[in-house]
Design a protein around this nucleic acid. Sequence first.
DNA 1: GTCTATATCGGGATAGAC
DNA 2: GTCTATCCCGATATAGAC
Lengths: 217, 217
Amino acid sequence: MPVSLPSTEPSGDSVSRILAAAKDLFARHGYDHVSMNAVAGAAGVSKANVFHHFKSKDELYIRSLSQACEASRSSLDAMEEGDGDAWQRIRRFVDEHLDHMLSHSRDSRLILREVVENCPGTGQRLAQEVFRDNFNRLVAIIAECQREGALRPDLDPVFISTLLLGANVFFFQSQEVMRHLDGVDFADEPSRYGAMFVDILMRGAASGPVANEGEKP
Amino acid sequence: MPVSLPSTEPSGDSVSRILAAAKDLFARHGYDHVSMNAVAGAAGVSKANVFHHFKSKDELYIRSLSQACEASRSSLDAMEEGDGDAWQRIRRFVDEHLDHMLSHSRDSRLILREVVENCPGTGQRLAQEVFRDNFNRLVAIIAECQREGALRPDLDPVFISTLLLGANVFFFQSQEVMRHLDGVDFADEPSRYGAMFVDILMRGAASGPVANEGEKP
DNA sequence: GTCTATATCGGGATAGAC
DNA sequence: GTCTATCCCGATATAGAC
């Protein structure tokens, strides 16, 4: 990663600095609690300069969002090239995905906010353009595991993918609450949480001899 | 439930009307996008009157939150008195809980926002006071199922409860996004989603003959 | 491109009459 | 308890000089 030299470009790269500051502030405090003044201050430029480069606060926000999304995309790559059997790869995905969310919690929260706040025009459309890519990749990988015989053929790979994501996202967003609930001793152990989850899933979704008492295949 | 007569109390019950309007607006648009002016207008009173009954916007918000929580509490009762075997009760809980969230989506979203927006002082403490009750009840029920022999004894009932809630919450909050993802044909069928989930869980968590290839008990 | 200064607007909260 | 009118502040956005 190239380090910018302040001497050569003391203010030339204002856009990057503004964008970085904005992403950080938006992720930490949310759209409404971040003023253009604060962004300007954090970026070391004047407020008018921010408006010169971004014609409105909304535009700056959208740009910040998409930048946060790009960072999120890179985490899936690690899994795809990994080896090991199907359940090992799935396990690794759960681990790394959760890890990535937690270590990039600001970006994750920034995106998550847009999901929860589902205004029809703003978040949904953008979230859709972002999620579709990664989601389809995950589904494809799960389907591949199924083709290898690791999952029962009657299961919907889309559903399994949803379950994986849901378990992780819920852990991420509820961690702070879980810490203050009785008996949740895994609140600070994401990898143990992932292990327990994949264990349940594996026993429940794997093909082979299954404890299906009262079920009719 | 006593019906208030508008003739006897045309404006006497301003507090209730303000609270109702506030809860509705906060749930739909979020704290920051609701002005006291808007609340006053929706409640049919003046802005000064709102400030007369609630000394600040924060107080009004907190009151709205706790009211939304009370409504959420009643849904758990239905399950506790239900009969049937363990997995039937669990299945019914998943169904009714998800149903409740969807039919009370505004209340749910209001609470969910506080979880995602985890500021240390505001949401967390209140969420904790609210969730603890219901969560402990759910854990107790799961533990009871385990005592009946429906779940493997080595499983943590707290973890299973978390999984149940997580799957439902994720469905609720991601429904709008899921609708626009490829292949998610269960996005509008919460009960099918619940059925698939409980099916996986049952096979994976049930005691009895289990497909544990490579596991050492 | 970058700044200082300013216009303009809306929201929270208060004063004081009725 | 309820209202009208008002204060005060901060936020978005713009104007115009350098």
